[in-house]
């Protein structure tokens, strides 16, 4: 009796310990592995990326901005910079630092890998938006040039990452920066979002939660020091200027139509028809290609046929074939309802 109890308790304890150690991602074993990886080299690579970011945005890199970006102390930042200077990757410039040609090349290499990884995670894995950047930050430091090339090939040598940032070519070429921060728009101006900054995470999560994404058309309604009110996909959104500054936009002509909000495929009842207007940007990678291959492209007329006995997948008549789509997929297909031609 007591032996049995004891063995049960021992088994329960050892299982718990094993789970704590090996639980994917959060387990101690994985944390320890990540801890090992966070070496001097990683800090240096991150510093180079920070320097390049500042330069691309026309800002000056100081010890302070570096310490803030990397979440390290001022002393550590100073010794890091000293080391980078020794290596000839960084030099002093006015009151801050700037990259040497050599340093810029290295920074671009890192940025390329980072953005390729984000594109890969977005398109070819089931991970959510807020995880892409974190994962990429972790994986980027252990990639060889060869692995980066293979990764690029695997996602179709993309030219933009999912946040709308251009991906440098292997030779380190990057198109010049386009657009302005959203905060520079005046009321009534219409613009297209071209970039959603993914750092800091809290701000990014807020932008994602509001459904803002590259490729979206917006119009500013009101602007004050405390808040910017805008309309996007037919919905009104209010952002604090600090948050809005993380969106880069390109001005469009005033008359440009603002589309939406749209109905989605889920709105159709049995026998009702709709014409596809667009596929939401959330539908990406293999999922998007698959749905398009099945014939769901702008202009396709779809009629709803039946719901399954279980309630969720719904069968639609798409270009002559009956295709079942899950609710989560149907939600990504924006349509305009067609009146039944009697």
């Amino acid at each position: 009796m007591t032996t049995q109890l004891a063995s049960l308790i021992i088994a329960a304890l050892s299982t718990t310990v094993l789970l704590l150690i090996f639980w994917p991602d959060a387990g101690y074993f994985w944390r320890w592995r990540r801890g090992l990886a966070s070496t001097k080299r990683v800090l240096m690579e991150d510093a180079l990326k920070h320097l390049y970011d500042q330069e691309y945005n026309g800002l000056i890199c100081t010890l302070r901005s570096l310490a803030g970006s990397l979440a390290i102390g001022g002393d550590e930042a100073a010794s890091l910079m000293a080391r980078l200077q020794e290596l000839g990757l960084v030099r002093l410039h006015h009151e801050g630092f700037e990259l040497t040609a050599e340093g810029r090349k290295e920074a671009l290499r890192m940025i390329r890998i980072h953005r390729l990884l984000e594109k890969y995670l977005a398109d070819e894995t089931g991970l959510s938006e807020t995880e892409w950047h974190k994962r990429a930050e972790r994986l980027e430091h252990n990639m060889t040039e060869q692995a980066a090339r293979e990764l690029a090939a695997a996602v179709g040598n993309p030219s933009y990452d999912p946040h709308g940032d251009p991906i440098p070519t292997p030779g380190g070429k990057l198109p010049p920066k386009k657009g302005v921060p959203l905060t520079e728009l005046e009321p009534d101006e219409v613009a297209g979002i071209i970039h959603v900054e993914d750092e800091p995470n809290a701000v990014y999560a807020q932008l994602v939660a509001e459904g803002l994404h590259p490729g979206m058309t917006i119009r500013v309604l009101e602007k004050s020091a405390q808040r910017i009110q805008l309309i996007a996909d037919g919905e009104e959104i209010i952002l604090a200027p600090v948050v809005a500054a993380n969106l880069t936009v390109e001005r469009l002509a005033k008359g440009e139509e603002i589309k939406g909000p749209f109905e989605t495929l889920t709105a159709l009842g049995v026998g009702e028809k709709g014409r596809v207007l667009a596929l939401s940007h959330h539908c990406r990678g293999q999922q998007r290609r698959r749905i398009m291959d099945l014939g769901v492209i702008p202009g396709t007329v779809i009629s709803m046929q039946m719901t399954s006995a279980g309630g969720d997948p719904t069968a639609y008549l798409i270009r002559g074939a009956t295709i079942a789509l899950r609710k989560s997929q149907a939600e990504m297909i924006q349509i305009e309802r067609l009146k039944e031609a009697a």
């Binding site: 639980w23 994917p24 995670l121 398109d123 070819e124 894995t125 089931g126 991970l127 990678g285 293999q286 999922q287 698959r290 749905i291 099945l294 997948p313 069968a315 074939a321 009956t322 295709i323 079942a324 789509l325 899950r326 997929q329």
Partner: peptide, 17 residues
């Protein structure tokens, strides 16, 4: 939710006649 979380998922199901 654990080991296969990162694998890509794309549902499709045709109901042939």
């Amino acid at each position: 939710r654990t080991m296969l979380r990162g694998e890509v998922s794309a549902f499709s199901l045709e109901l042939p006649p």
